Amino acid sequence: MMRTPTLWKILALPLLAVAAVAGAQTPAKPSDAPPQLERIDEMGEAPITVTPQAPKQQITEKREGGAVTEVKVTTGGSTYYMKPSAGGDLANSGTLRGPQWKVLEFDLGKKKQKQNEEEAADVPAPPPAK
Rank of each mutant, 00 (worst) to 15 (best):
A22F: 13
G23V: 10
G23K: 12
Q25R: 14
T26K: 15
P27R: 12
S31Q: 08
D32K: 13
D32F: 13
A33H: 11
P34L: 14
P35H: 02
E38S: 07
R39S: 04
R39D: 02
D41R: 00
E42W: 04
E45N: 11
E45D: 11
A46L: 15
P47M: 05
P55V: 05
P55G: 01
K56R: 15
K56N: 09
Q57Y: 12
Q58C: 06
I59P: 00
I59H: 02
T60S: 08
K62V: 15
R63M: 13
E64L: 15
G66M: 10
A67P: 00
A67Q: 10
V71M: 06
V73I: 05
V73C: 01
V73H: 01
V73W: 01
T74E: 14
T75Q: 15
G77Y: 06
T79R: 01
Y81L: 13
Y81W: 14
P84R: 00
S85T: 05
G88Q: 05
L90V: 02
S93C: 07
S93A: 13
S93P: 00
G94P: 01
L96F: 15
R97T: 09
R97N: 14
G98Q: 15
W101R: 12
K102Y: 05
K102Q: 10
K102A: 05
L104D: 07
F106P: 00
F106R: 15
D107R: 09
G109V: 13
K111M: 10
K114M: 03
K114D: 03
